[in-house]
Design a protein around this nucleic acid. Sequence first.
DNA 1: TTGCTCCTCACGTCACGTGAGGTGGC
DNA 2: TTGCTCCTCACGTCACGTGAGGTGGC
Lengths: 146, 146
Amino acid sequence: VSAVANRPLRIGEVAELTGTTPRTIRYYEEIGLLPGADRAHGKHRCYTEADVERVREIIRLRDLLGLSLDQLSELLAAETARAELRREYAQAEDPLTRGRILDEALGHIATQLALVRQRRRELEQLERELVDKRRTIHRRLAELGE
Amino acid sequence: VSAVANRPLRIGEVAELTGTTPRTIRYYEEIGLLPGADRAHGKHRCYTEADVERVREIIRLRDLLGLSLDQLSELLAAETARAELRREYAQAEDPLTRGRILDEALGHIATQLALVRQRRRELEQLERELVDKRRTIHRRLAELGE
DNA sequence: TTGCTCCTCACGTCACGTGAGGTGGC
DNA sequence: TTGCTCCTCACGTCACGTGAGGTGGC
């Protein structure tokens, strides 16, 4: 987390910051998961801190939720649209519009939360079974000692 | 869970019971994750309830821990060896041998538990952040209503 | 005998990894 | 100018999906 927030970043730096590779970032651009900043063919890609956050979010959800990039794209599409809307309508001062945007955001977060909690429950179940197994083995070891 | 426990199962039944496909089961046999019961070339594969449990475990760890099949193979190798040992030495009545086997099992379970708990913590962190986001939005909605 | 599932190639796909050969910025 | 990272093909790989064509068991 640098103090110089707005320096344009190169793809290698973004890869380093997000724990991935340039190839992965290019691939995500290719399939539309990342914006693909307009630039001349062959020219270097330029990224911002916001792009780094986007990449971090993608990688986190990919790893933790085990979704395909298609599903992930769908999950993030709402958020992407919301970010656009927020930029457009933020100064609109229209309470109705703002309320609608916030409602959409709530729905989007609820979707993610449901997926995260489902996964957490499955992991907790697996954890309980492993702890049970361990206890059984400890008991058998104790019986051996008698 | 059938009452007829020991009827030989066909690959399609195993796939159905474990929520996967015959192709996946054949592939796991091909790379050595599944035993590959000896049979004549072209003959049907035969499975037991124990095989079903093995497939279930593989799929669960694959999905929840996000490991490659190589890593998964390594993680399960200890357990596979242990199952073999248990069958061989179970009636040995030798407390030293039994103790060693149980110790190995403990180490194996500890490894799995560490992975599961790490994943659970990451999911809990993500869940907290989503709940925070949601609270922020609720607050903004309340401010709009004023 | 008729379906159904099974078999073995084998090619396709998704999400990248990994060079090959060349250009660009501090 | 020298390295370094960047660029674009493009082929390889992992974990299967998906037919193609044929055989086996209730």
